[in-house]
Design a protein around this nucleic acid. Structure first.
Lengths: 208, 208
DNA sequence: ACCTGAACACCGTTCAAGT
DNA sequence: ACCTGAACACCGTTCAAGT
């Protein structure tokens, strides 16, 4: 019984039984121990879930440094999203607070490094990176909740148009990400028209 | 005892005692009734909180149609954020799910109308508006949680720089919002350099 | 000193019993 | 038919009692 063993078992339990199984009592039952035994390795439930989240985030590969800065940012954020969605038990927690364990910090450094390389003013790098992280967290949250699709959003979509663009979809997520990256490009090099806009997005939308 | 009375009392209770007071039992005690009495007016706790959220959002004024589209979007989103932060009991719920009661739908229509006016392709209007709403929700969540400041973020800030830009701050929020609006501008009129970038942001950051 | 599990102070919601 | 409150099936965490 080490923190790593507990975290790994909790991740697996969440994969099998979903977020409803992530209670101290259910986790302890799964481990075959008393709920209080967990408190000997983690100060509280939140700390345990942080460790589990970092475990999921460890699956994300650090993109190669030769790639262009925007592709690196896009890769990290879409990969974190995909990794979180592979682990339904912990996805909601990842969406709620940015995972800043060792794996999370490594990825955060990739983003700030890429933004500095993009030509953003030093004082803006952290603000832009937090904007990207915030947007990604919200996009993930929408995807998580789309599992139980929201009646109210359906009504709004219906009121506006027939063809629903699916609220928490990957396409929706990447669209907003491109808006942010375009905005960052403009911030870094005002006046220059963005020649690469959309170059790395999955779909070509120039003829919609 | 009508739904409106219950929602108003719950909003006031949350203003006074914070999110911890927003349980069916505490709300009922505040109203001087049995917890079950509330279920006669709302199907469940979530529906009640949705009504309370809409009450808070009703405080946001619909911006004048003569204003430029980006200023209208900026006004709505910063005003919703401010309204939510004036009501600590319900702010977390507003951050978790976009309020789509009658007041929320009215504001959502302002945003989609503004984006259509901006020149965005019809198919992109809803995607961009969802990106804006998602970002705003995440920014609000960070502000709410910044009330109990996050030790982990403090470490990251410290590791990167000395001068902490405050995670959930209004300045941070507006910066990300400008990135998104700039991205939308570029999406609507590719090739045109954005001459109005930052024109409506609170601070002039051209000489940092 | 270490570990356990009973207990505390809560939840949202159901449902049977009262009026 | 309407309303109440006891009860159900949970929570995270504390803490006293055991080993």
């Amino acid at each position: 019984m080490t923190p790593a063993v507990i975290a790994a078992a909790t991740l697996a339990l969440g994969d099998r039984e979903g977020p409803g199984a992530m209670s101290m009592r259910r986790i302890a039952a799964d481990l075959g121990c008393d709920p209080m035994a967990i408190y000997r390795h983690f100060p509280n439930r939140q700390a345990l879930l942080d460790a589990v989240a970092d475990l999921a985030v460890q699956e994300v590969a650090v993109p190669a440094g030769e790639k262009p800065w925007d592709e690196r940012v896009r890769a990290v954020l879409t990969d974190v999203r995909a990794a979180a969605l592979r682990h339904p038990g912990i996805a909601g927690h990842i969406a709620s607070r940015p995972p800043l364990g060792s794996a999370g910090q490594k990825l955060a450094a990739v983003i700030t490094g890429a933004l500095a390389e993009a030509g953003l003013a030093p004082g803006d790098v952290l603000k832009a990176s937090q904007a990207l992280v915030a947007y990604s967290a919200a996009g993930l949250r929408m995807a998580v909740e789309a599992g139980a699709p929201d009646e109210r959003w359906r009504q709004v979509n219906e009121a506006l148009e027939g063809e629903t663009p699916v609220v928490g979809s990957a396409e929706q997520f990447e669209y907003g990400l491109r808006l942010l990256l375009n905005g960052i490009r403009l911030e870094a090099h005002p006046g220059e028209a963005s020649r690469t806009a959309g170059a790395y997005s999955g779909q070509d939308r120039s003829c919609s």
